[in-house]
Amino acid sequence: MSGITYVQGDASAPQGKGVKIIAHVCNDLGGWGKGFVLALSRRWPDPEAAFRRWHRERARNDFGLGAAQFVQVGPYLWVANLVGQRGTRTGRSTGVPVRYEAIDASLGLLAGKAEELGASVHMPRIGCGLAGGKWSRVEPLITERLVARGIPVTVYDFEP
């Protein structure tokens, strides 16, 4: 048992009470426009605007693989932009865009923010869509970084 709750639904509409953080994986190119981010942008403009600004001003901030940005979108709701993907394309020399070590580092930052806010964490199967990752590699990172610290995690499998 991983300690992660799995549900059918939309991670951009998290279930439950209390403070919630919606986590997702972004790329290190500043691109935003495919995958789960579209569901976020349909609900709130701020996570995309903050991500694009964070990337644009990267010479003066911590933007990069393994970084995390937290954007408040409601009184008890936050979005975590986790940079865990190198580029956006799968290539012969570079493989898939997912970077497990970057996801691991950003999950550590997410854990700190969740503890600070007393929040639960909600996400799709991060790093496993367009980033090309394997859930069998991501799930243990979530278990180690979040669940082991007592942070409730819900993973949503979307069925349109």
Rank of each mutant, 00 (worst) to 15 (best):
I4E: 06
D10R: 07
D10V: 03
A11F: 12
A13V: 11
P14S: 00
P14G: 01
K20A: 06
K20T: 08
A23V: 06
V25M: 03
V25T: 14
C26T: 10
G30K: 06
G31Y: 15
W32T: 11
W32M: 09
G33L: 11
K34M: 11
L38K: 15
A39F: 14
A39M: 13
L40D: 11
S41E: 15
R42E: 14
R43C: 04
W44E: 08
P45G: 01
D46V: 02
P47L: 02
A49P: 12
A49I: 12
A50M: 01
F51M: 12
F51P: 07
R52N: 13
R52K: 15
W54N: 13
W54C: 02
W54V: 05
E57V: 02
R58F: 05
R58W: 06
A59R: 14
A59Q: 14
R60E: 14
N61S: 04
D62L: 00
G64Y: 10
L65E: 11
A67P: 11
A68K: 10
F70K: 04
V71N: 07
G74A: 12
G74H: 05
G74L: 02
P75M: 00
W78A: 01
V79C: 02
L82S: 08
Q85E: 15
G87T: 07
G87E: 10
G87R: 09
T88A: 01
T88N: 12
S93A: 14
G95Q: 13
G95T: 08
P97C: 02
R99Q: 08
Y100P: 02
Y100F: 11
E101I: 00
A102C: 07
I103L: 09
S106Y: 06
L107C: 09
G108Y: 09
G108V: 03
G108D: 08
G112C: 08
G112S: 10
K113N: 05
E115R: 14
A119W: 10
V121I: 07
H122M: 00
M123L: 09
M123E: 05
P124D: 01
R125H: 15
C128S: 10
C128T: 10
G133V: 07
G133K: 00
K134A: 09
K134Q: 15
K134D: 13
W135S: 02
V138H: 04
P140M: 00
L141Y: 10
I142N: 01
T143Q: 15
I151H: 09
I151C: 07
I151E: 05
V153D: 01
V153E: 01
V155I: 13
V155M: 03
F158D: 03
E159F: 10
P160L: 00
